[in-house]
Write a protein that binds this DNA or RNA. Structure first.
Lengths: 239, 239
DNA sequence: CTACTTATAGTTTATTTGACAACAAGTTTA
DNA sequence: TAAACTTGTTGTCAAATAAACTATAAGTAG
């Protein structure tokens, strides 16, 4: 099967052979105003015109699945350095009404502030939805989203991936609210603080929050290097 | 693409349309003599003749991926009620030398005693290997195995799935050794016992181990019904 | 200067974990 | 038949962790 693509450098239309009957769909998570959000696209053509679904695409014959997912993300959001991980393959025979298509689900964690969504040429519109205000999704995308949330909840407790949703510099309260939102729990501020600082993953900055009408909190930064060194020493992140 | 299958009831050869360029490969775990094992098959034909790999197969156009994995397991081992879970899709462009093929990995946990391996018509031979004595595996099957082990380690700590590797009736020591082997740690007998019994997942039987040359241990049984009820009440298995 | 809000530090109690001793119930050996 | 041995099972205790809550600090707004 041959599909149209936009060449990165020239911007021109080019054709590539893609895998048959296999697609990619990606749950893109963002975090803003204390709420977890997902980027959805509105289909501009085909049988599901006007309906919302996860951004997706084809896999070129010559690229790995992971590369395809990265490319998809870049085409849609201009984002380059995001946290991206495969969920699994979804393949109920009737998941796509017109044909037998298996899709490979991914989820991404992005820093919302850093990037602008650009509607790709396969989507007439794209926007962020709070995860508890999602519209009905096409095909089995609801199922994929549900699975991704489960996966995210698990992952966030076993690896320091939450930072991918926050700005470079953040306060401990922001971090805590992120955990509260993802895990759907209430946490105790002093205890959370202690627990996290004890791991020594965060680099405290000589800088404070700005523009708040109360005592400004200290800003912190997650340092992947420190984490790497700690894991090499046998440290195991756990929340 | 059309492939040959053996009809379950008649035993005759039948033809089915299968998905193109997508396969399934399954890591089948067993447990015996305190050791974790994996069932491998030796390829009887094709470019990898004589080499060992994970059992795999095609996905019929009309069946779900999960069904295909179940069918594969049944064809190979006559096993029906096994624990089976998808890992993820593996799709490096060069993973299969002759063509671009994406494979969907699964892992299964089986009670070794209950079933006999029968060499399927796609494998000239099949046998169990201890996980630290595996031969080199074809294609990316080594990678798939490694991933499955990681997944199993994680899963076994978050859900009571280990029982799928043990006989119906087992002693607490057997269970502990299973955990020790999977997680690659040493555990304290009294503490393990307490921890596990406290969860009240196990039904103690009025029966004891037989044929041992020392005090016989009490036999226990895992009761999925109890587990189900507990989870409904908000219980969360954790080890 | 006072009220208010959030940050941050400290305290105290309950719970869990880990290490280990002690005893019980069988088997083997002498 | 008794002692030695092996593994099962129960009990104890100190240390570490987690949870709940109090107190104080630092800033803003009126």
């Amino acid at each position: 099967m041959i599909k149209d693509f936009i060449d990165e450098e020239s911007g021109e239309k080019v054709k590539h052979a893609v895998m048959n009957a296999i697609t990619i769909d990606c749950v893109i998570f963002g975090f803003e105003g204390g709420k977890l959000e997902v980027l959805l696209v509105q289909h501009g053509q085909g049988i599901s015109k006007g309906e919302w679904g996860l951004p997706g695409g084809w896999i070129k014959k010559t690229e790995s699945i992971d590369s395809a997912a990265h490319r998809l993300l870049q085409e849609l959001t201009d984002i380059d350095d995001v946290y991206l991980e495969q969920l699994k393959a979804f393949g109920r025979p009737d998941r796509y009404p017109l044909d037998r298509v298996i899709t490979i689900g991914y989820y991404a964690l992005v820093k919302k502030e850093d990037y602008n969504v650009k509607a790709g040429f396969t989507a007439s519109d794209a926007r962020w939805y709070k995860i508890n205000e999602l519209p009905d999704l096409i095909y089995d995308h609801g199922e994929i989203f549900k699975f991704s949330l489960k996966q995210l909840r698990q992952k966030v407790r076993q690896a320091p991936v939450g930072f991918n949703l926050l700005p470079e510099k953040f306060t401990l309260l922001q971090l805590m609210q992120l955990y509260e939102e993802i895990l759907n729990v209430e946490l105790d501020k002093p205890n959370f603080r202690r627990k996290f600082l004890k791991m020594k993953l965060l680099k405290g900055l000589d800088e404070k929050q700005k523009g708040v009408s109360h005592r400004a909190a200290k800003l912190y930064k997650f340092d992947p290097e420190i984490y790497k060194k700690l894991t090499e020493k046998g440290f195991n992140f756990e929340f």
